[in-house]
Design a protein around this nucleic acid. Structure first.
Length: 288
DNA sequence: CATTTCACCTGGTGGC
DNA sequence: TGCCACCAGGTGAAAT
């Protein structure tokens, strides 16, 4: 479900609600296939630590953790942030159906709730994921386990570096956009939407795109991701942010899941094909 | 090494 | 209503 804009929206929302809070109790459910770090080690790394901040890296949510010391003690309900130094990271990947929610401990526990972090403020951070394609991991920075997304950051990459990613590659440009070791954060929706806006067919070989096409693609990708972040992401079925609010970018989709509907530019019916094993939508007239 | 295919899961939808 | 096929925002392991 979540690609870069959805993960960014969630990370910002969670950060605003839990930054500076302290984890009192960490609980993990019986389904352990989604734990990359054993539950006991995650509990140990989380309990009594302070949340230094929450941010996005690629499609991952990085929860920065710091030792709770006198400098982070809460005074008058406000946490003093001075001296908070991240010494561990809780890495959350949402997979297809994962959600990270800030609730109260009394809120009904939804089915497929796999983790609950009870916070000192009275809030609770929950991870819910029906399909269990998500992953939870604890990294100890003291052991040099700092998390780094493998691919380039799509919102920051510049023209030359972007072009270099695809040089000499024979695979379809759509498949290349989905490869997280090249770019981290692009998924099925934004691959299709950026290719439409750049007027490039998804099955074109990546290495055959011209310099001009690659630059159109980079700018289209950055624009579509930024626009989606502004609208809180795309809610195709059940995506919601940290507060349970849906995004609105699905209203701006020009090809994704619009098979057979008229192109918003030229009225040609949108076509669906399978590329890299994923549904791929494009306008056969606008995209060359 | 590069690229493709498939398995991993649950749940919703639409056809019969 | 039930049953079944198919589809879904992702990604890693296995095969080619």
């Amino acid at each position: 479900m979540p690609e870069l804009p959805e993960v960014e929206t969630i990370a910002r929302g969670v950060d605003a609600r839990v930054r500076g809070d302290q984890i009192v109790v960490a609980w993990f459910g019986p389904k352990r296939d989604l734990l990359k770090t054993p539950a006991a080690a995650q509990v140990k790394g989380l309990e009594s630590r302070t949340i230094a901040g929450v941010r996005r890296m690629g499609k991952h949510i990085v929860v920065g953790l710091a030792a709770t010391g006198p400098r982070t003690a809460r005074r008058n309900g406000v946490t003093d942030q001075r001296g908070v130094e991240e010494d561990a990271q809780w890495i959350v990947h949402l997979g297809m159906t994962g959600r990270l929610l800030v609730t109260t401990p009394e809120a009904p526990v939804e089915p497929h709730t796999h983790a609950r972090l009870e916070l000192k403020s009275g809030r609770e951070l929950r991870f819910v994921d029906p399909r269990r394609f998500g992953r939870l991991e604890l990294r100890d920075l003291g052991k040099g386990e700092r998390f780094g997304a493998p691919g380039a950051e799509p919102l920051a990459i510049e023209a030359e570096a972007f072009a270099a990613l695809f040089r000499g590659r024979k695979l379809a440009i759509k498949a290349a956009l989905l490869n997280q070791t090249l770019l981290s954060g692009v998924g099925n929706i934004y691959a299709d939407e950026s290719l439409f806006r750049a007027k490039i067919r998804p099955r074109r070989r990546a290495g055959r795109l011209t310099q001009a096409e690659l630059e159109r693609l980079r700018l289209a990708l950055q624009e579509v991701l930024q626009a989606a972040i502004r609208l809180g992401g795309s809610s195709v079925s059940d995506y919601v942010d940290a507060e349970g609010v849906r995004g609105f970018f699905q209203l701006e989709h020009r090809v994704y899941q619009r098979t057979g509907e008229p192109c918003r530019v030229c009225k040609t019916p949108i076509r669906r094909v399978v590329v890299a094993g994923r549904s791929t939508h494009y306008c056969p007239n606008c995209q060359k």
